[in-house]
Design a protein around this nucleic acid. Structure first.
Lengths: 326, 326
DNA sequence: CAGTGTTTTGCAAGCGCATGCAGAGTGGCG
DNA sequence: CGCCACTCTGCATGCGCTTGCAAAACACTG
């Protein structure tokens, strides 16, 4: 920077201002500095700038599992939004262990301007503590005291049930994971919608994670349930159910209709393509980044929440019960 | 840091050394400092440290598409290895455009100690330029002048062909993307292996990307090709072929056997599970990180290359031609 | 106990940039 | 032409930590 200053016949301060506060320096001076800078291939050292300003222009993103397409798409969207806002992105894959995630988050908090937590596995107290320590925004989850961008699953689940009921299904299996406070909020609307449409609900709430293998296992219980349709609460488990049914020689949607919640590219890489409750991961992620950025600029505003609408995307995995095989 | 120093009755230098060069300070002094530090909840500011040292302890990872499970798994593995080595990780999703990737890489290079390029879309000149500018390691690609960790696809492809030949297939379709220098290296061994086993090879080298949709399109041409087996050069296109065949009412492996190159979790979320040439993404990624770290420590060594063995994982999508439907 | 060789510790000078404050320029007006 | 109100620019200091160099402390000799 000193070199540029000398070469351009100005002081280092001016050079600095050319890059950080361009309009405080006269146009011709600015141009001269920029020319010299280009010639000398100079760009301000972001590190030094961060140190001096106390702003890193870096965001941290924590996800439980990058390899899961749901989170991978969030990562992708967050990355793009961050870049558009001229922020760098630190990524951490926390795994399922809450304590690890918390420790990681704390470490990361001190190297970034703010943290994005996607589907955090932490408990409320941890999230609260992080929120008090610095800017935090949640993606795909809602906490009262923390900025969050999440999908309106309740309404969406109603649409799913209505769709199945309209096709004539009268008994539905709902595959969801461990019964916790966080998932409970999604079960209720399913139940209500079923009641409303005169549909019987067979809940299959395992003490298990929503993995492919557990989906296969769940599929084994479907034929004896008397149901004609299955709602899977995430895509992994949905593929498991699909695979399990196929293994049994059952047809989707011939023998059973199948709907998944989550709608990444995987819903279309399977045959038949899955009818899905689409969660707008990209706008959710984008909003999350924006909320965080706002929070960074204004640390003491009221927490803001962005509830995003879901949409039902009807594909080939749902049909009238007993319909001919496709 | 000054506070800690005062409180512990030592100078700031000593506190600094406690954290960066622990064994240059006497045990009891060190302990006293650590105690005070804990009490005051002090941790060295990594930014300031980076600035002073000229080392960021941060690596940059560039991938063309995080949402693609192949890259997602690389990201995950790299992340874990980096963490184990106490390095933070910057992530950038470059998309398919080479120029963007290059610009991004350059920007990132100046905020990190080194760059990891996974399946770079850049041309050789760009990679060379980056390599000259700073530490770089490639993951899943090989460049002579740059450290690289990649899979021995040539040998693997031979195993694939041998497997199919052993099952009795005499005519095979090979679906690969645009004919470029980089993919050419993989086609030759397939051809050779086919010649060796008396198998006819029908190449289907499109001017297309290896996407799901192109796989579906490719599947349309399979039945008329007279072949009984298909090798897909990546997982996306393999799923497309599988979906396309299913849509035509063909059975895998009843009517056609199918082998995919790449073996992420997706190879098992489809029914039937795909026989795959397994690429050890995690060790490949780990080696990539290690190579980069070595390069950072020793900027002027000879470039090193880690060629990793692939393995054929036989699952349900391959069988003798004309075998009964499963 | 002086003398010598080793640790330990402190001092001071950076690392590269940002920014409050004050002085230098610039333009406008009477 | 003098004066005022702005706009630009430079000086000096600070961000929080690292590290070469030298002084201080300590451990061993003979």
């Amino acid at each position: 920077m000193a070199d540029v200053a000398r070469e351009a016949g100005v002081s280092a301060s001016t050079v600095s201002r050319v890059f950080s506060l361009p309009d405080t320096v006269r146009a011709d001076t600015r141009q001269r500095v920029l020319d010299v800078a280009r010639r000398l291939d100079f760009t301000p050292n972001r590190l030094a700038s961060s140190l001096a300003r106390g702003r890193t222009r870096t965001l941290g993103l924590l996800v439980p599992d990058v390899a899961n397409p749901y989170y991978a798409e969030i990562v992708k969207a967050v990355q793009h939004r961050a870049r558009a806002k001229d922020q760098a992105l630190f990524l951490a894959d926390t795994g399922d262990h809450p304590a690890d995630g918390f420790a990681l988050a704390q470490a990361m908090a001190r190297q970034t301007d703010g943290l994005l937590l996607a589907g955090p596995r932490m408990d409320d107290a941890m999230v609260r503590e992080l929120t008090q320590a610095g800017p935090v925004a949640l993606i795909g989850a809602r906490f009262a005291g923390t900025d969050s961008a999440y999908a309106e699953l309740g309404i969406g689940m109603r649409h799913v049930v209505r769709h199945l009921a309209a096709l004539g299904h009268r008994r539905i299996v709902y595959v969801n994971g461990t019964r916790t406070a966080r998932t409970a909020g999604h079960r209720q609307p399913v139940q209500e919608a079923c009641d409303e449409h005169g549909v019987e609900l067979v809940e299959q709430l395992g003490p298990f994670d929503l993995t492919f293998d557990n989906g296969v296992a769940a599929a084994d219980l479907v034929p004896t349930s008397g149901a004609t349709a299955v709602i899977a609460h995430n895509e992994m488990v949905a593929h498991g159910v699909a695979g399990g049914l196929a293994r049994q020689g059952r047809s989707v949607p011939g023998d059973f209709s199948l709907v998944t919640v989550d709608d990444t590219f995987m819903a279309r890489t399977i045959y038949p393509a899955l009818t899905a409750l689409h969660i707008p991961l990209d706008v959710m992620s984008t909003r999350g980044v924006d909320l965080l950025l706002q929070r960074i600029d204004d640390p003491d505003g009221e927490p803001r929440h962005a509830a995003l609408p879901t949409s039902l995307v009807v594909r080939a995995s749902t049909a009238r019960p007993g319909a001919a095989r496709p």
